[in-house]
Design a protein around this nucleic acid. Structure first.
Lengths: 213, 213
DNA sequence: GCGCGTATATAGACACTGTAAAGATTTATC
DNA sequence: GATAAATCTTTACAGTGTCTATATACGCGC
């Protein structure tokens, strides 16, 4: 046949090869620039091959999104453990970890929320988002001293915390702020700003706390 | 020729017709679903016609983005005026107006930040964003009592305010929160939540204020 | 070791897309 | 009224995602 140079007919590890190709493509050029055919090309395989493993373009990207979100959850969890015993410290550490991950992987982060590229209702994706939410609830419960039910949306403090973290990272990524800062400085400056900001947010929780928990 | 039914050869108002078509397409299906050819079809014109007015697909969408952002700035400004004399009230009103606009036009809002679909460095777009920032700085200066220089990024309070507003709206739009709420309730519930949250944010400014300005 | 079902990969086709170039038609200007 | 400019059509081309039919290799029962 054509196209088969030294490889065997069966690739052997095509699924992970395609995911790796997709990851680097998205990282470099963004989710919109991802192409099933180019991914197949990079994996050294015909353009029809991916269908057998992912069925669909969005199928492939959905698996990538799950991968990315899992990494994010793990890194946040690690940061919380490293933060020591104080729950408010833990909460801040989680926020910083979220922000760090998001601004370190802007295009991957964006991908995970693009419903034209990802099956937002995929069970695995929903599961990892669930894990993310659970971590937040736990941190929040510890920090405010009261047990919070998973109906996180009713609580203004929790909402404030997520919104700040999510919003700040998004604005950095979308160049709403720090537009003209050179790439190398961007991250450190963003983190410094985030630190100040989350400190300020901490005062909100400080105010509504009995102060001795 | 073919395709010309009752219309004259020259459309007469093709530019606005295409923008209108684009707007409804984006509103209904999102920016990724927008198609130059379909827009031309809706305007009753051949697929090559748009090029003469916008040059490019992103050119057209950029003009749409400018249109949308202008509306947003105007509505926010109107809300601030309607809020009365108290600067903190004004600030909250601006925040609510931003949120209201964003959750009312989720897909249009998203479009404005998608750098694969929009020329983010377009002069007109930059200008309207500048206007948006200026409004915020002014509100913020009035609310905190001190004159703020346009280096808004250095100020943690300002940063907190933008992040909360931007982040909250984004999370509503991307179904991170209020996923399962029926469409008709979503907006009112989101606004109620936003109101509580911004009230909480207000306490932050209240704390750092001399309290009598 | 052998056959056979199944998983995996290929190849070609189809309907789309955006963009570019060349021709046709109307409007504007002198 | 002639000529230039603006506007629209048409044709063509290189991509894309997905579908279908075909080819190849693997794994399991015997």
């Amino acid at each position: 046949m054509a196209g088969l140079t030294d490889r065997t007919y069966h690739h052997g590890d095509l699924k992970v090869a395609l995911l790796a190709a997709a990851r680097s493509m998205v990282e470099e050029e963004g989710g919109d620039a991802f192409t099933l055919r180019e991914a197949a090309r990079r994996a050294g395989v015909s353009h029809g091959a991916p269908a057998h493993h992912f069925g669909d373009k969005t199928g492939l990207l959905t698996e990538l999104a799950v991968q990315v979100m899992s990494e994010r959850v793990e890194q946040v969890e690690a940061a919380r453990i490293a933060a020591g015993p104080d729950p408010v410290d833990q909460l801040k550490a989680c926020g910083m970890a979220h922000i760090l991950f998001m601004i370190s992987h802007p295009r991957l982060e964006r991908l995970c929320w693009q419903d034209t590229l990802v099956h937002r209702d995929d069970p695995a994706l929903l599961a990892v988002l669930q894990r993310m939410a659970a971590g937040l609830i736990e941190s929040m419960s510890a920090a405010t001293g009261k047990m919070l039910i998973p109906d996180k949306e009713a609580n203004p403090s929790t909402l404030l915390a997520i919104s700040v973290v999510h919003g700040f990272a998004q604005m950095v990524n979308e160049r709403v702020i720090l537009q003209d800062v050179p790439e190398q400085e961007r991250q450190t400056r963003a983190l410094a700003m985030a630190d100040d900001m989350l400190e300020l947010v901490g005062t909100v929780f400080g105010n509504e706390l009995p102060k001795d928990v």
